[in-house]
Nucleic acid binder design. Structure first.
Lengths: 147, 147
DNA sequence: AACATTTAAATCGTGCACGATTAAATCACT
DNA sequence: AGTGATTTAATCGTGCACGATTTAAATGTT
């Protein structure tokens, strides 16, 4: 066991805990999302559209922190599955609006139980989860300003 | 703005904060890793091997929480780049050991500055980062037991 | 010894992520 | 009006992640 560089010990790396925890939580979502034929990033995009229908891809991207190279194919899949439609802005043909279909809107109620089921599975007290979320958001906020 | 299902508000979703923070931190690593022609998951695997050289793929996978379907191609790329070699166990031909090459070993010292540079970039006090890491690890530990 | 079971790695297919580039529309400025 | 810069989405290529399957080797059981 090398101890030349203890700062490189995996157990000291916040980055790895973050990476592992994120994938772990995504895996926990899979069984529930699979019932609705959704992937986790698709679910994120739907969360955004359920809050505000008819958004521009650009604005969805800002909210989800994803660019068109990820969103365009993802939205095409959602469209193929009948959950959204895409429509160019007639005022500015560069832009593209995304609208929920009826099926996409109806899915919201069906997914409403997911957050509470997830909370149950994590088995961590709600105060700790809130604390964790705040710390995570602080970690990201810095760079948004710096940009 | 739909408020039928406030539990689905993106801003209330720990999962999204986790997902966004993880990708954010990975992006922060990119410039430093690119200098050594490494991706972030490759760096994770090297962190593991720097701690203990000559591990089985199975054990690397347990440590990194990755299976062979992810590790095999990743290790082939590390091998192509001259950082590791792979060798079947002659006692048990199913198993495969991964060894650092000289170049792979030498890279450790070159990467030793990365953690401190990352700490600088996050601009979050070290106590908060430690707290964050502990919470993340608690989130994951539960499922390992349940499994 | 024969055969079912288990294990480890590799393979396959799908869907992200993301850097880089492209194409088209709009804007800004002369 | 003309043209260079900017904006938006799409496209392209690479490398993960991961469920599912396959292959080969080892193990267990009769």
């Amino acid at each position: 066991m090398s101890e030349k560089h203890p700062e490189l010990n995996l157990d000291n790396q916040l980055c790895f805990s973050l990476y592992a925890a994120s994938r772990h939580i995504t895996r926990l979502y899979q069984p529930m999302l699979k019932q609705h034929n959704l992937t986790y990033p698709q679910y994120i995009v739907l969360l955004i559209l359920w809050q505000k229908d008819g958004m521009l891809i650009k604005d969805i991207g800002e909210r989800a922190q994803l660019k068109s190279n990820t969103l365009t194919p993802l939205l095409k899949r959602l469209e193929q599955n009948g959950l959204v439609t895409r429509q160019r802005d007639s005022e500015d043909e560069r832009q593209c609006y995304v609208y929920l279909t009826e099926q996409g809107k109806n899915l919201e109620s069906l997914c409403a139980c997911i957050p509470s089921q997830m909370l149950k599975q994590t088995e961590m007290p709600i105060e700790k989860l809130i604390e964790l979320k705040q710390l995570l958001d602080q970690l990201v906020v810095k760079e948004v300003h710096g940009k």
